[in-house]
Simulated scan of single mutants.
Amino acid sequence: MSDSRTVPAKLTGGTALPRPRAAGIAWAALTVSIFSGWFVITRFSVTRELRIWDITALRFGIGALLLAPVLVRNRTRLPRAAWGTGFVFAMLWGVPFVLLVALGLSLTSAAQAASIAPTLMPLFAGLFAWAFLGEIQGWRRWGGYAAILAGLSLLLLAGAASSGPPSAAGIGALAAAAAMWAVYTLLFRRSGLAPIESAALICFWSAVLFLPVYGLGGLSRLGHAGAGEIALQAVYQGVLMSGVAIFTFNRAVSLLGSSAATAIIALIPTIASLLAIPILGEHPSPAEGAAIAVIVAGVLLAARRPGPPEPSDQRRENR
């Protein structure tokens, strides 16, 4: 399904038009802010009364309700194939993704989880785009990916020095989540779906598949949590994560391309570390600060567009 309202992909002097790129960076920055807070807010609740099952139910249940008008309004325009695509997207960036990250959180720590999954995602996205789609990355991006990986390694070593080596199973779960996220990113750009449509379909399929298991399986602990904690998670998980963050990330991918948008996502450990200082009382060590600086340098390199435009770089406007 194509969108007739696209921004021309005309290039001037081999560089992208500045206005769409600036808008894409703004959408990516908003996404990074929301995702960074997600690791902190989720860790805050799962160490108290609520469990990851409650977080997942709030995230996709409320998200499905809020975004239902999008599917109702577009039901005659969305082809049957779009619903199948949405199901695939839900398998990549819906409940399975959340549960894998939750497993990683339970086996490692909030700081390590916020470092591993978002940092590996642009590496997987760049590698997959190069290997399977023939996208030219350029030496700057490869250098940026190398710097991001080096920064991640330094973060893990610094964490191991203070709290022991991380769990191999936890790292594996977070790496799998990052790979799924990367595949979703590449598929979304070629799906023809608008950002809000993709977000609505992910929430719809996730709610349909998970909520019956949640309700019939007796997994709820909402009755044990206070109203304030439930309200916090309902707003952050159901509104910001399931609605706003998916939409803003999709817009960033549409405007910047998958490689640049996913590279900016690697800034999440930096923002999450800053948020953890006042909320969780966690202060990064000097070694962790140096590692974060290396990651930032890698992001600045990897987020740059190579000379020729990326294939299929169609910039969809919000419908």
Rank of each mutant, 00 (worst) to 15 (best):
A207Q: 02
A207V: 00
A207S: 05
V208I: 09
V208W: 00
V208E: 01
F210K: 00
L211K: 00
P212D: 05
V213W: 05
Y214P: 06
Y214G: 04
G215M: 09
L216K: 02
G217H: 08
G217V: 13
G217R: 06
G218H: 11
L219Y: 10
L219W: 11
S220F: 08
S220Q: 13
R221W: 10
L222Y: 08
G223A: 15
H224N: 14
A225I: 10
G226K: 13
G226D: 14
G226L: 14
G226V: 12
A227L: 15
G228T: 12
G228E: 08
E229M: 14
E229A: 15
I230E: 10
Q233S: 12
Q233C: 13
Q233H: 14
A234Q: 05
A234N: 07
V235Q: 04
V235H: 06
V235F: 15
Y236F: 15
Q237L: 14
Q237G: 07
G238H: 00
G238P: 10
V239Y: 03
V239W: 09
L240E: 04
L240M: 14
S242C: 04
G243K: 06
V244H: 05
V244I: 07
V244N: 01
I246H: 04
F247C: 08
F247W: 09
T248N: 02
F249K: 01
N250C: 11
N250L: 01
A252S: 04
V253I: 14
V253Y: 02
V253A: 10
V253G: 04
S254R: 05
S254T: 06
L255I: 09
L256E: 04
L256R: 03
L256T: 05
G257F: 04
S258M: 00
S259Y: 01
S259E: 05
A260N: 03
T262Y: 01
A263C: 07
A263S: 15
I265F: 08
A266D: 02
A266S: 05
L267N: 02
L267G: 02
L267E: 02
I268W: 05
A272F: 12
A272G: 12
S273T: 08
L274T: 08
L275A: 10
L275N: 06
P278Q: 07
P278R: 03
L280W: 06
L280S: 14
G281A: 13
G281H: 02
G281C: 11
G281E: 07
E282S: 12
E282Y: 03
E282D: 15
H283D: 07
P284E: 04
A287M: 13
E288F: 13
E288L: 09
A291T: 10
A291W: 11
A291C: 12
A291N: 13
A291S: 12
A291I: 10
I292K: 07
I292V: 13
A293M: 12
V294Q: 04
V294W: 01
I295Y: 05
V296Y: 03
V296M: 14
V296Q: 07
A297P: 03
A297Q: 04
A297N: 02
G298Y: 06
G298E: 12
G298V: 12
V299I: 09
L300A: 15
L301Q: 11
L301I: 05
A302C: 11
A302I: 09
